[in-house]
Nucleic acid binder design. Sequence first.
RNA 1: GGCGCUGUAGCUCAAUUGGUUAGAGUCCCGGACUGUCGAUCCGGAGGUUGCGGGUUCGAGUCCCGUCAGCGUCGCCA
Length: 599
Amino acid sequence: MLRTHTCGELTIENVGQTATLCGWVDTIRDFGGVTFIDLRDRYGRTQVVFNPDSTPEVLAEMGKLKNEFVIKVIGKVRPRPDGQSNQKLSTGEIEFVVSDLEILNACKTPPFVPGQKDVPGEDLRLKHRYLDLRREKMLDTLQLRSRIIKTMRDYCADNDFIDIETPILGRSTPEGARDYLVPSRVFKGEFYALPQSPQIYKQIMMIAGYDRYIQVARCFRDEDLRADRQPEFTQLDLEMSFVDSDDVIGMIDGMMQRLAKEILGLDLQLPLQRLTYDEAMTRFGHDAPDLRFGMEIVDITDLASTCGFGVFKSTAEAGKFVRGVNAKGAAPKYSRKRIDELTNMVKDDFGAKGLAWFRCEEDGSLFSPIAKFFTEEELADLKTRFDAEPGDLLLLIADTWDISCKGLYSIRKRMGVELELYDPKEMHFSWVVEFPMFERGDETERWTAMHHPFTAPRDQDLDQLDSDAGKTRAKAYDLVINGYEAGGGTIRIHDSGIQQKVFGLLGLDEESAQERFGFLLDALKYGAPPHGGIALGIDRVVMLFAGLDNIRDCIAFPKTQKAYDMMTEAPNVVENLQLEDLGIEISKSAGNQKTDSQS
RNA sequence: GGCGCUGUAGCUCAAUUGGUUAGAGUCCCGGACUGUCGAUCCGGAGGUUGCGGGUUCGAGUCCCGUCAGCGUCGCCA
């Protein structure tokens, strides 16, 4: 080792000792005589001192130092003078008097320095990620990530799980998200797919008798990105045999309790709260509601059906819904202009036709441009149902179930932030269970699987597969933290008869099912135990535990919204020779989407 | 693919209704200083306002196009 201690290690205990430190020059404070340098590494910072009575050689070297130089210093630990300790540093009681200095490496003037107050733009941070990762916030987050993964692994190991790696090069199954494809050199014209999840492999492991499996698995989906979505992400993938939903949920309950305790020092009460999917949609308009605050949806379709307001009445009569939320105390803060912004949001984003509103005045009356269409009794009824008090703002959407859910969910989410309806540091864990097995594909009468086609229906719903498939509920469960889907899982079908029936409902005939999943269907016939599992989005869990709202800050080398890596400049054009090896030609119309007209 | 926000010095930002030579802090360069910890003080350098076009007597500011980053809808079994 080039060093005897790290930059976070020396304390008053070490006074008098000679030591060697290595690190980066964080700041230089030059007083002409004495010079202070904060030397930084991932463990902390130590103030190193250069005295005017140092040797000329040392002082000459010191004069060359600039931000982010990598140096080695030999010196002695001494206590700081009275009243000059720095409480912000673990090493703040001492300082390090340099007797010898070696510049291990110089540093070009960096575009930004780790300690600067204003965080640089994200594109710059991503381009120079090696500098960005030196920032304390990034270091903290990645260390938190490491601890979270270790805690998850320890918990699983304590519960007899086996950690098994599954292939990255796999078979494309054109269900769900777009695959990232990898061309085969040997089988020209054929492709591997990167896994969207190790779903099928972990089921195979259950059939093989490895009854408790986990993997910290990298997954890939070629879909458009979001603040909480990256094209490659990491899951804690878990599968268990001889279990039902409650067993998997209970296992993860325990994991969350341990994580909350060890990472955040929080005591979680178990079992975690559970909501059915129907309840979540009815009360919050979303299958991953943020339960840190109320503002629940109120359904007034029945009242609307008899009122004098044409839009409400016709919506109700058409079998659609009139629902709304009460934004407590929002009226003074929401001008017409801000209400218009909300209106435009639900119109532009979800195709709602409008947003009706009522303001509860000081005298308790409801004011609204549409109030004139309602009788006194109806207004009073509205007030009661929404529990409206002076200062409250009622926001209503009259539309299909789907649009009213999406619109009110996004209003609730946005206003929860804007009205500060919850403590952003609070953590809320819950489960959403009993998802529907199927949903209607757009513009077709065909059913599509809400999770994946191997999801088992609830035992009591088996009959409905034939009679009323849309009402069939699945043995599916999502872990929800602060309004984010932190994980999702299902109990799988282990009965080939039920599997065939589900494939039938999904419009998969036996032949095409065999073509796509033949190996799994075959395997299921060779003694498959009842099994199920879950996948936790590790990046999201880290994001939530770190109190961040952006998944990129939880990943060492994330990609931009266009799935571009600004540091390595991937993806990139490859040599023609490489393409020839693979038997691939780029069509002229495809061209290179990237241009160099930027900057 | 749609909608929206942003783009001004290396970095973070400012610039009134479209108006004279585009400013500040920081970084950088030079100098002073023996107790700072966002050191301080003095001096200096640093700009094709992302790119292209248009309107105008005049554009950082308005319009069109384009590129990039971000947010969001679609999409993500």
